[in-house]
């Protein structure tokens, strides 16, 4: 069973349907609960950093996620969900994140159009089981205006949008995608399948 964290905003349906399409059961997690129930946890993302953090805290979901990660079971953040895994976010105001990974999330400094919206290719920095059976430079669908500030040690793939954008992060069982695998066609489903194999 994959638990999908619901923190009020955003459309959880797409990510649920994508996991169900490739054969996983999903359940919406709205408040702190026993983590034994879930083989993996997903933090989806649509919305803004400060609001998302305060809603996670209201229902003690921030503590739930941190405890869950200690079990070593896979934890995935998607888009804003990936950004929330880091120490600090600078959207609107400086906000403490879940602090599971080191780094800061900042507004994109690019002469190109913002939001960064559309299909971009991945450049794999560090090979990983997550990329198994994917083409060399698979395309993924991005929609975001903020990004992880630097290519840190945890960044295992990036994309080029005039500036280098961290696209996949991983530290042991904590994984994040800046793009939307649930909106990226077959390569997106394949990536979610590979994530599912970590269970």
């Amino acid at each position: 069973m994959i638990g999908i964290i619901d923190y009020g905003a955003g459309n959880l349906n797409s990510i649920c349907k994508a996991f169900e399409h490739i054969g996983f059961d999903t359940e919406i997690v709205e408040k702190e609960t026993r983590h034994e129930k879930y083989d993996a946890l997903v933090l989806p993302g649509v919305g803004a950093f400060p609001g998302a953090m305060s809603r996670l805290k209201e229902n003690n979901l921030d503590q739930f996620i941190k405890e869950y990660v200690k079990t070593g079971k896979p934890m995935l953040g998607v888009c804003l969900g990936m950004q929330l895994l880091f120490e600090w976010g600078y959207e609107d105001t400086k906000t403490k994140g879940l602090d599971l990974l080191p780094g800061e999330v900042v507004k994109m400094d690019s002469s190109l159009k913002i939001p960064h919206m559309g299909w971009n290719e991945l450049e794999i920095i560090k090979d990983d089981n997550l990329f198994k059976d994917l083409p060399d430079n698979p395309h993924y669908y991005f929609v975001h205006s903020y990004k992880l500030k630097e290519i840190t040690d945890e960044v295992i793939a990036a994309t080029d949008y005039g500036v280098k954008i961290p696209a996949v992060v991983r530290k042991d069982n904590v994984i994040g995608f800046q793009f939307h695998p649930e909106k990226s066609g077959d390569n997106g489903l394949k990536l979610l399948e590979n994530f599912g194999e970590l269970i």
């Binding site: 190109l112 960064h116 559309g118 971009n120 290719e121 430079n137 395309h139 994309t159 080029d160």
Partner: peptide, 8 residues
């Protein structure tokens, strides 16, 4: 290989 944003 061009890696910039693709035209849709």
């Amino acid at each position: 290989m061009i890696k910039i944003l693709k035209k849709r």
